[in-house]
Design a protein around this nucleic acid. Structure first.
Lengths: 185, 185
DNA sequence: GTCTATAAGATGATAGAC
DNA sequence: GTCTATCATCTTATAGAC
């Protein structure tokens, strides 16, 4: 129960934000050091190499998303409501901070990432697909059908976020997200 | 009718490929120079600044896509066939070269791009949306409906490409693309 | 944990010869 | 058009003092 966030936490927070807007190859240790108010050498004390920081960002993002999914499940049984809440996880980052999904951004840059970061990104998408397929599963229909609709839903949200970066507003993203829920549920 | 591609064309071809796999911030003039077999100073002769090259890539990609859309329209009247052919434009780049859509990649890095490059990326998506909405338009239904389905289709394809970067194969992308055609048509 | 100092290499770019 | 030579700057890191 620490009142003040540690330097390490502030670094992760700043770096997460910057990666979500500028990408892994679009930021440097100098950017983060400036934001946090320390020197790059101090940054290296917490995360020796850039890949260490990248991996930590992905791990924490994955964990936070997992907790959000658990919250959604505990708060409603309705599948449509669950999908709507899920879409809001994406919409909020876009509308509040103009951010892409962290792992969506890292997926674009996948070919340039250190292997440990790649592993976390892949794990994130595996988790999202599994959770969505579970939400979409129906007794009467085969499980492969739910999986396919989970893929469509996930791809639709990530792609809508991606395209929304070129939009001035979040209106189109929200419309598309609603249409996706209707389509898939 | 030139038999041999000019240096400039070879530069554009190499750079397009690299941006589609590594991103705008993931390549340097040195990379392209090595691929083409010239020095970076010669590269600067053709494209003085990196932004000039980026802009040219986006312009040509946009044009090539526009021609592909015209081909599709001339070859079939069937809306489902048109959507399938459209999806194949994306699938082919993924399966043949492991490439993302150039403008999808640039959309991720949008915040870091020179303004002229941003303009081309935005224009690309506007064009895609307009074409898809036209294909999806139906006499009985309002035009806003076709536009919304165009958004879903475009976002779904771009997002599926994005997520596919973490996959070993293209199977999931193709399945998702088929489901998208079914969904939207 | 944070700092100063430092370094090797990459990066985007220019000048001027051929 | 392409080359060599050169550039300032950025980037990722390391060493060692406080």
């Amino acid at each position: 129960m620490q009142e003040q966030p540690s330097t390490s936490d502030r670094v992760v927070e700043a770096a997460t934000s910057v990666v979500q807007t500028r990408g892994y190859n679009g930021f440097s240790y100098a950017d983060i050091a400036d934001m946090v108010g320390i020197r790059t050498s101090s940054l290296h004390h917490h995360f020796p190499a850039k890949g260490d920081l990248g991996r930590e960002l992905a791990i924490r993002y994955r964990r936070a998303f997992g907790e959000a999914l658990a919250d959604i499940e505990s708060e409603t049984d309705d599948r449509i409501a669950r999908l709507q809440r899920y879409a809001e996880l994406y919409a909020r980052q876009l509308s509040e901070h103009g951010r892409m999904c962290l792992c969506g951004m890292l997926a674009a840059e996948y070919a340039t990432l250190p292997a440990p970061v790649q592993d976390e990104v892949r794990g994130f998408f595996d988790e999202q697909r599994a959770w969505l397929a579970r939400v979409l599963a129906e007794e009467r229909r085969p499980a492969t059908d739910a999986r396919r609709r989970a893929d469509v839903f996930l791809a639709g949200l990530e792609g809508a976020l991606l395209v929304a970066r070129t939009d001035g507003s979040t209106a189109r993203f929200k419309r598309t997200a609603r249409a996706l829920v209707d389509t898939v549920a």
